[in-house]
C-alpha cells in the first residue's frame, strides 16, 4: 500500500462518489460541489501516477493537474454565475421585485439583442445607433 496505490484508490473512490451524487441530480449547487469532488478525484489519480518512481516525482502530471484545477475553477465560477442568474430570473418571474439590481424596463426580461425587435426601447436605440 505505497503512496501511489493509496491515493490512486482514493482518486477512484472520490470520482465514483462525485459521479453518484451528480447522477442523483440534487440542486444545482450540490451538483457543482459533486463535480468539484469528481475533479479532485480525477486529478488525485493523475498525480498519484507521477509518484511511482524512487528518485523524485514526474513533473508532467503535476503541471497537467495545475491546469486541471484552474479549468475546473473557471467552469465552476461560470456555473455559479449562471445558477445565481437563473435564480434571480425565477425570483423576478414570480413577481418579486429585485432590490439592489438595476432592472430597467423590459431589459432584464431578456432583450433578444436583435435589431428591430418588438420592444420599443430596443428599436430607437438600434436605429439611432446605425
Amino acid at each position: 500500500m505505497d503512496t501511489f496505490l493509496t491515493f490512486a484508490l482514493t482518486g477512484v473512490v472520490l470520482f465514483s462518489l462525485g459521479l453518484q451524487e451528480v447522477l442523483a441530480r440534487p440542486g444545482v449547487l450540490r451538483m457543482l460541489i459533486a463535480v468539484n469532488v469528481m475533479g479532485s478525484g480525477t486529478l488525485l489519480f493523475f498525480v498519484s501516477l507521477a509518484h511511482r518512481h524512487a528518485d523524485g516525482p514526474d513533473p508532467v502530471p503535476h503541471a497537467l493537474a495545475l491546469t486541471g484545477i484552474v479549468v475546473t475553477l473557471a467552469a465552476t465560477a461560470a456555473g455559479l454565475a449562471l445558477a445565481r442568474g437563473l435564480h434571480r430570473l425565477r425570483a423576478e418571474g414570480s413577481g418579486g421585485r429585485v432590490e439592489g439590481g438595476r432592472v430597467e424596463g423590459g431589459r432584464s426580461q431578456g432583450a433578444g439583442y436583435e435589431r428591430g425587435r418588438s420592444e420599443s426601447g430596443r428599436d430607437e436605440q438600434g436605429r439611432a445607433d446605425r
Binding site: 507521477a50 518512481h53 516525482p57 508532467v60 502530471p61
Partner: peptide
C-alpha cells in the same frame, strides 16, 4: 493493470 513501477516522462 497500471504498472506499479514506471517513471512516465520524468
Amino acid at each position: 493493470e497500471v504498472p506499479p513501477r514506471a517513471a512516465g516522462l520524468a
